[in-house]
Design a protein around this nucleic acid. Structure first.
Lengths: 232, 232
DNA sequence: CAGCCGGGTTGACTTAAGTCAAAGATTGAC
DNA sequence: GTCAATCTTTGACTTAAGTCAACCCGGCTG
């Protein structure tokens, strides 16, 4: 890893929330241990139980982290986009990946090997704090997810997801699903058939309008109530 | 906080996995900012949305962290016992508690205020690493929980819980439920009626034997399969 | 001692959501 | 451009688990 290439990697790393605010000297070290790797759409990045020799940062593309049941059904835990880290759990505890990861699109990842990274963390308080923030944030997400899976019905989970998207996309009431409906079903803890029926039901009931992957929120108020109470 | 009292607190803190391996000098500082607080059984410790000015460490007793749905159903996220920390999320991200916490029994907690603690973390790499390990561990637990809620039926979740207990208690095939059946139902994401029926069904099918809160594992092999495949 | 209250159990019923199967619709590859 | 593979929708059916209501039981309280 040399000259220009390394320099741009350094800048990119410095721009991620994980490494924000770190001294260039440290980023330099980081570049020394980082490896850029590519995966094709659908390729498996790691599998639950694999020993984790390091973790990843998404540079381009998107990645799903998921669990698989004995009979092959999948539950997506996270979708990661550019700048987001994943696979950190075995770096600090447990030594092996608790879940599977695969590329949703062709993607380019930065791999940070465990030992060198831990070393860097111990010498760099702000990196440690950033990491703690990332993990804490993820714990929150999980708490919401458990809440949602256990206390809300599918329409409620869907409503919550749509509202979340609309906050992220900030295109008024129009929004673009970022996942195929099959993947969205897996993220919401259900199956495509059920998702399909519920989208239709919400449309009939005047909450949303559907045109392929474009959804228009018709009645934000009621959608928010649905997300809140969790029952249709 | 003076003399003897403080010294024993220091020793106790040094014995928790969170502060294991920290220099006495730092533990000294820690004692300076720590406050011991007591809660009665059923008392609320914090509520989702409360600003988090610090986090807690269980000294004696047990605590539940949980979510509540709009119609009052509860889902327990964690049960914490002596030595375990909780409520750390807002220390590093988000500023407010994502869930509720209440005392399951009369208990004594150590409260560590945010700012002083963050300060300590930045100056103490091993503390930062311990914390990262704790949070990573918790992320694993959550992943298992989501997996379980979404991909397994109640009998499967129950089987997994019983096996977990039996590994922790190490009393051969006999084990003691550590929660009331109502609480256990809430931890497994179901309701007491359903749990009751399923316990009975598992007994009828020869997986376990039930005597009040004492459960004996009769067929560990099949129980493990049930936990694995998730379906009865 | 009576009465009450919380926890646990049981039964009858309802329902959300999963299964299975088949038919469109899209996408991609050759 | 066409054929295959994958995604999506729809319908008919099944089922796990929730709701509601009643009852039981052990422990406290007054």
């Amino acid at each position: 890893m040399e000259g220009e290439q390394c320099k741009s990697l350094l800048q990119w790393l410095g721009g991620t929330s994980l490494f924000a605010g770190m001294d260039d000297a440290y980023l330099q070290d980081l570049c020394g241990i980082a490896m850029v790797v590519s995966y094709r759409r659908r390729a498996t990045i790691f599998t639950a139980g694999d020993p984790g020799y390091g973790f990843y940062l998404v540079k381009e593309g998107r990645v799903k982290v998921y669990m698989i049941s004995a009979d092959g059904k999948e539950q997506i835990l996270h979708i990661l986009g550019p700048g987001e880290p994943f696979g950190e759990a075995p770096v600090f505890a447990g030594r092996s990946f608790p879940a599977h990861a695969a590329a949703l699109e062709d993607c380019r990842l930065v791999f940070l090997p465990r030992d060198a990274f831990v070393d860097l963390v111990t010498r760099n308080p702000s990196l440690a704090l950033n990491l703690l923030a990332v993990l804490s944030q993820r714990l929150r997400q999980f708490a919401r997810m458990v809440d949602s899976l256990s206390l809300k019905e599918v329409p409620g989970r869907l409503a919550a997801h749509l509202l979340l998207l609309s906050r992220r996309q900030a295109n008024g009431d129009e929004l673009e699903l970022e996942l195929s409906k099959t993947q969205l079903a897996s993220l919401l803890g259900t199956i495509p058939e059920t998702l399909s029926r519920i989208l239709r039901k919400l449309q009939k009931a005047g909450y949303i309008r559907i045109e392929g992957a474009k959804i228009t929120i018709v009645d934000r108020q009621r959608l928010a109530e649905l997300a809140e109470i969790g029952k249709f």
